[in-house]
Design a protein around this nucleic acid. Structure first.
Lengths: 214, 214
DNA sequence: TTAACATTGCGAAAATTTTCACAGCAAATA
DNA sequence: TATTTGCTGTGAAAATTTTCGCAATGTTAA
C-alpha cells in the first residue's frame, strides 16, 4: 500500500468524526456527496480519500456507516491502547485534560507534568501530575509515544528535549515556538496566536472559503 | 496583485513570529536559509513566499529583519485596530483570553459571551463577559468581524448563527463540530481531539517529518 | 426481462504547490 | 581594477493534490 498523505489522514479522521456524530440517524448507508457536504469538500475528494482506506462502497447503497467507521479506525487508530503525556498544566493543558477525560478508550492522557509543586502529586481530570524532572524517565518507562506540549514559550524547548530523551515519537505543540527535534519525531504546531492572526486576515477579505481542515 | 494562497499567508505569519522572536540578535539582516531553518522549510520556499509581500532583500545582506517584519505586517495586519469576540468561557476560552491579554495592540478580544450567569457581567483577563443572547447585537454594534468559538459541540451551531447574524466575517472554531456558515464567512477549524488523533497516528510511523504548520 | 437511474472506483487531466537552477548583483578579496 | 563569493528573484520543471469524466454496477420501475 502506498503511503497516505498527511492531508488525507486528516480528512479521514474528520470523516470518522462526522460519521460518529451522524451515526444515530436512521439510514445505515451514506453517499460520498452527503459526507462531502458535511465536511465541506467535493464528492470526488471524499471518494478519492476513501479509496485509500480499502473499504469499498456500493453504487446503490453508498458506504455503510458502521463499516466505514471501522475501516478508517483500522487504518488510523493504534493497534493497542496508547498512553499520552501532557506537559504544562496551565489553562490549555487543563482544557485538554478535561476534553479528553473518559472520551476515548484507546487514547488516554495518563501522565501530566508541571514545575509548580502545587499541581504535582494531584490528580486533575483523572490524570496524575508529576514534576517535570521526572518526565523523561516516566515517558521511557511507560513507552509513551505521543506528547502534548502546553508550556510557556520559554520552557518549550527544554521540555521538548526531555520528551525526546524519553523516546517520544510525536508532539502536539501548543507553545508559540518552533521546536527543534530529530528528523524522525513528528511535530504538529497549533499556535493559537497565529491562528487568530490568520483568521483576522481572512476576515478582512471579500472571498473567504476554506479548503483545509484542522 | 495576485491573490495570495492560504498556505502562504500562514507561512508569512509564521516568519513574522520567528523574526520577532529573533529580533534581539545582533545582526540586522537575515538570509532565506536562516529563516528556512527556523521555520523548517526550504530556502526556496521562503524566497517564494517573500516575493509575494513585495519587499525585496539584497543578495549581500539578505533581508532586513525590521523592514521584513513591517512588510509582512502591512500585508497581513488589518489597517486599524480590530476587536474580536469570544464565545464560550470554559477552559479553552479562558486560556485564549489569558494568552491574548495585552499581547497585541492591534488585536484585542473585547467581548466574551457565555450562558452561565456566574460569568456574565464579570471581567476576565481584561475582557468583559456578556450573556450569549446579546451576542448578535454587540457584534453588530461594534462592527466585530472575527470570532473565536469555544463552546461545547451542542451549542456550536446556534452560537455560530448568532455570530453570522451579527455580521461576523471569520470564525476560529475550537468546537469539535463542523459549522454551517454562508460561503463568504471564513472558518478555521481547530478540533483538539482530531489533532491528538492525527499526532497519535504519525507517532506510530517510521517516517515523521512535517511539511505544514499550524 | 429490460430500461432508466444514481452512484462508485479510478484513469487521466487540471490545478496548485514546491523545488530546481541560474542570471544578475553587491560586497569582499586579491 | 578584476575576480571570487554567496546571495536574491524568478522562469521553468517537478511533485503533489484535486477535479473531471466515464465505464461498471446494483437497484428500482416498467
Amino acid at each position: 500500500m502506498n503511503l497516505i498523505s498527511e492531508k488525507t489522514i486528516e480528512r479521514l479522521i474528520l470523516y470518522r468524526g462526522l460519521l460518529l456524530q451522524a451515526n444515530h440517524e436512521n439510514e445505515s448507508g451514506i453517499y460520498s456527496h452527503q459526507l462531502a457536504r458535511m465536511a465541506g469538500f467535493t464528492p470526488a475528494q471524499v471518494r478519492r480519500d476513501l479509496m485509500q482506506v480499502g473499504y469499498t462502497g456500493s453504487p446503490a447503497r453508498g458506504y455503510d456507516k458502521a463499516k466505514l467507521i471501522q475501516s478508517i479506525s483500522a487504518l488510523v487508530d493504534p493497534a493497542e491502547k496508547r498512553e499520552i503525556a501532557l506537559a504544562g498544566i496551565g489553562s490549555i493543558g487543563r482544557a485538554i485534560l478535561a476534553y479528553f477525560h473518559g472520551r476515548s478508550s484507546l487514547l488516554e492522557i495518563t501522565a501530566a507534568f508541571d514545575t509548580d509543586p502545587e499541581k504535582t502529586g494531584r490528580v486533575i481530570h483523572g490524570c496524575r501530575c508529576h514534576p517535570v524532572d521526572r518526565l523523561a524517565d516516566i515517558v521511557r518507562e511507560r513507552g509513551i509515544r505521543t506528547g502534548i506540549l502546553c508550556v510557556p514559550a520559554g520552557a518549550a524547548q527544554s521540555v521538548t528535549d526531555a520528551l525526546v530523551e524519553g523516546g517520544i515519537r510525536g508532539i502536539l505543540n501548543y507553545a508559540p515556538t518552533r521546536l527543534i527535534v530529530p528528523p524522525d519525531v513528528y511535530v504538529e504546531n497549533r499556535d493559537m496566536i497565529m491562528a487568530v492572526e490568520k483568521v483576522v486576515y481572512f476576515s478582512g477579505l471579500k472571498t473567504g472559503q476554506r479548503k483545509e481542515n484542522g
